[in-house]
Structure formats: C-alpha cells, structure tokens
Simulated scan of single mutants.
Amino acid sequence: MMRAYLVTVALCALAFSLASASDPSPLQDFCVALKDSSDSAVFVNGKVCKDPKLAKADDFYFGGLNIAGNTENLQGSNVTTVNVDQIPGLNTLGISLVRIDYAPYGQNPPHTHPRATEILVVLEGTLYVGFVTSNTENRLFTKVLNKGDVFVFPVGLIHFQFNVGKTNAIAIAGLSSQNAGVITIANAVFGSNPPINPDVLTKAFQARQECGSTSSETILI
C-alpha cells in the first residue's frame, strides 16, 4: 500500500514538473485576437478571442516582410515586428518573428525580451552579436556572424547586434512568444517617465555630477 502511494506521489510530481516546464498547450486549434473589445472583457495572459467560426485566412497573414526598414536614425537600424498585433492568429500560439535591417555600422542596441528566447539568422552582411548572463557572473558571449549563420539569445538576457560591415545587413529572428516585449536598456534607464531620480543613477553607474554656471554633466568614475 505504501509503495503504491509513493509511486502515485512520484507520478504526480513528475506530471507537475513537466506541466510547469513550458507554456500550457492550446485547448483549441487557434484563438484569433480581437483588436477591439469591451471594457468588461477578460484577458488571460493574451488577447480576447473572436468566434472561431468568424476566422478568415487574413487573420493568419502578414505581407511586406521583403521591404527594407528605414535605418536613417541614431542607431542605424530598424526592426519590423510581426507579432500578435500584426497577425491576430498568433494569439496563444507562443511564437512571433522580426526582420532587422542595419545600415553600415548600425546596431540593434543592448536590450532584452522579457518573455522570449530569440533565434537569429543572418540573411545578408556581417554582424557582431552577443549577450550577457545574469548578475551571478555577467559573462559576455559574442560571435561574428556571416550570411547563413544562426545565433540564440536566451530569454530575458541583455543582448545586441552590430553591423561590422561596410554594406547593409539583414537578419530574421524568431521569438518564443506571441508578444515578446522589448526593453531597450538605455531608453528604459535614462528615458523613463517620470525620470528616475538622478541620485539613483549616479550611484548605480558610479558617476559624479559636475555643475557649471549654465550646464551640468555626469562623468563616469
């Protein structure tokens, strides 16, 4: 009797560990997201679904990923996102992708995706890419990628891409979330709304402030 009880407990523990190791499996073929919903709608870690009988092919379609993005900006890059906001049929499916265009020496600056692992393949050009592990070690993993090369950025870790070539570069990346989210480190830290208290940033970045008569500047120590 005791042996049967222990086996049952072990099987339950195994089932729980397997169930919690990844996102739950969908309970239906698809759940096309509604763009507009009432204030009383319930969101369960995703978007409200339309009646499956009203779904159409366009709910699973996006066109124009062959069009290069505008890289005439400070970073020299452009990210074209294809997630649940562009393809409603991605709702609950746990996958999305992006196209990234880089001008010569352009970069996709250090950022994180809080809800997704990213796998990137270079279509054109040469990219210097990397990610940093969590604070236990802060190890930096980097690689120079050429056309056809693939690199993985683990979920939640800070990562970047930099075009080290003299020509434009293009990459496609898959993400393990219908809505991976993105936190660009510099923008989040220095461009928050409202701003983070300067004393916090000064101490965090080990900087000192030197004030002149008409302006002030922060100098890293």
Rank of each mutant, 00 (worst) to 15 (best):
residue 6 L to K: 13
residue 7 V to S: 08
residue 21 A to V: 07
residue 24 P to H: 03
residue 25 S to K: 11
residue 26 P to N: 09
residue 32 V to S: 03
residue 38 S to L: 10
residue 41 A to V: 12
residue 41 A to D: 15
residue 41 A to R: 04
residue 44 V to Y: 14
residue 45 N to Y: 12
residue 53 K to Y: 03
residue 56 K to F: 05
residue 57 A to G: 11
residue 59 D to L: 09
residue 59 D to Q: 11
residue 60 F to R: 12
residue 61 Y to R: 13
residue 64 G to S: 05
residue 67 I to Q: 09
residue 77 S to N: 08
residue 79 V to E: 13
residue 79 V to T: 15
residue 80 T to E: 01
residue 80 T to S: 07
residue 94 G to N: 11
residue 94 G to E: 02
residue 101 D to E: 01
residue 106 G to D: 01
residue 109 P to S: 05
residue 111 H to P: 14
residue 112 T to M: 10
residue 112 T to L: 12
residue 115 R to I: 02
residue 122 V to S: 04
residue 132 V to M: 10
residue 132 V to P: 12
residue 140 L to C: 02
residue 143 K to S: 09
residue 145 L to E: 12
residue 146 N to K: 15
residue 155 V to G: 03
residue 156 G to L: 09
residue 157 L to Y: 09
residue 159 H to F: 10
residue 166 K to E: 12
residue 168 N to H: 03
residue 169 A to H: 07
residue 178 Q to T: 12
residue 188 A to C: 10
residue 190 F to Y: 08
residue 192 S to R: 00
residue 195 P to R: 05
residue 198 P to Y: 04
residue 200 V to H: 00
residue 203 K to T: 15
residue 205 F to V: 11
residue 205 F to M: 06
residue 215 S to C: 12
residue 216 S to Q: 14
residue 219 I to K: 15
residue 220 L to A: 15
residue 221 I to Y: 13
